[in-house]
Write a protein that binds this DNA or RNA. Sequence first.
RNA 1: CGGGGCAUGGCGCAGUCUGGUAGCGCAUCUGCUUUGGGAGCAGAGGGUCGCAGGUUCAAAUCCUGCUGCCCCGACCA
Length: 569
Amino acid sequence: MRLSQYPINTLKETPAEAEVLSHQLMLRSGLIRRLAAGLYSWLPMGLRTLQKVERIIREEMNRAGALELVMPVIQPAELWQESRRWSEYGPELLRIKDRHQRDFVAGPTHEEVITDIARRDLKSYRQLPVNFYQIQTKFRDEVRPRFGVMRAREFIMKDAYSFHVDEASLREGYRAMYDAYTRIFTRTGLTFRAVRADSGAIGGDVSQEFHVLAASGEDAIAFSDGDDYAANLEAAAALPPSEPRRAPQQPLNKVATPGARTIEELARFLKIEPARCVKTLIVEGTEDTVVALVVRGDHELNAVKAQKLPGVANPLRMASAERVVKATGTEPGYVGLVGLRCRVYADHSAFALADFVCGANEKDMHLTGVNWDRDVTGAVAADIRNALEGDPSPSGRGHLKIARGIEVGHIFQLGRKYSEPMKAVVLDEAGHEVPLYMGCYGIGVTRIVAAAIEQNHDERGIIWPEPIAPFQVVLVALQLQKSTRVREVAERLYAELAAAGIEVLYDDRDARPGVKFADAELLGIPHRLVVAERGLDAGKLEYRHRRDAQSTEFPADDALAFIRSRFAP
RNA sequence: CGGGGCAUGGCGCAGUCUGGUAGCGCAUCUGCUUUGGGAGCAGAGGGUCGCAGGUUCAAAUCCUGCUGCCCCGACCA
């Protein structure tokens, strides 16, 4: 591709709308353009990378035996009513009406449609197992789209759905997808990790996420330094302390703590460690109740864990200040456990405390020397906090470390969540109708591109992993308007590389060297060749990898063999 | 949804407080010079100042309403 005929428009300045680095670089390098909040066009340079990612995915999905199809973006409401997600999915589901006032949705995912296909077309266990996938645009009406294509409203996803006659086959199919995903992410050249996950809104039992590791990742990942345990922090178990609780030593005592609403203020006021205090969080319960959740002062509540407890509203909602006053007699900041009349869940670590501090259910007052059983009864111990770096690993070996990741893939064993309500059944060997077992497997295709940049960049721009770079080689010809010799060599080299099937971006623009170098680096093309008067006298060209600090010279006659030797094996 | 902020040429911004008919840098176009790290000079094009009302002799600027966009938002119980 000749850059003189490629309308790239790189920006020196960062558009104000972009906060994260990948978004800034994608805009500056002209990979994408924003059309509206969470809606992006992919310009030619960006599309090349996107298609490389798609190609890797397609090849590995096909290799794993999955069958590609395409389903509509717009789907009839009836299907979503059947699966109950019409009412369960919430405002992220974009609902639209056609000219006849019939309800439709812009598909945020395609379980309903594929299940409909399955129930029509799959009749017999003999047709199973089968795995269908598509690479298709999804729409999720995010509350707050941000970070460019990382959290856009419209995005491209590879979604696959497998169907099985029994659970054993589902597990096998799931395992095959795990392996395929591992190959896919390995081939993209990204550093990633597979972790245990919460299955969230999609539903189902077993699930794992694939995360690209990057400091700016939205998710926290906990992994063990002692074995291969890894989990999303949302799903990482926090083990109960190994030592038993001490016997009470202090008497219960009420102290004035004027203005000490937060744990930090309280701990400072009483000159004690936050770990000696507990936070009593009042959340909405199921029905018209509230529930108290208790965590140690130095711990954070884990909403995903908490909302699974019996009696706690799912999704988790903090009670309003008015509800807190009504339930406890005091305002937020002074809520405590003694005399509290509602269901109480205490995190294992909080439950292991003796002689601790909590609110007194009275403004500007706290209680010290509080003890479970003696002063507070009826609390149920549960794991409701986030695991912390240094906690013992739930696997029993090693301790947890925390890293940040960008979720780019998620695989689920759905079981019969959709097949049962939607009556997707086949006849088994005995001739009985049985609901299908389903698995579903997603990859955020557009997000991978942003994640790749988050993980691979420097102050000059993008550094593409070679397998997904828009071009393999950038050929920079300096002063080719002046020097016929440079032009001839560059043209010949361009033709030669192109004929050899190498993807070359040929910078034949009439621009100054600094402009060309800066653009090549911003665009992040892995291999750079420079043709200039300077080297040609000695018959030399110049090579530099995007990650290299220095250029190297090599004989011009030998260019094709040389550049091939530089490609990753 | 709650809170905060912004909307002026393709991009980044100034001008708004104190009304007088729009400016800077980048980008674009032309010419000359320049050419190994985002050139210099000379010239040019491009903006009904988010939209709709209002006040005024006069509105980017003051007032009202609307729209769009950006940022933050359990961890306080």
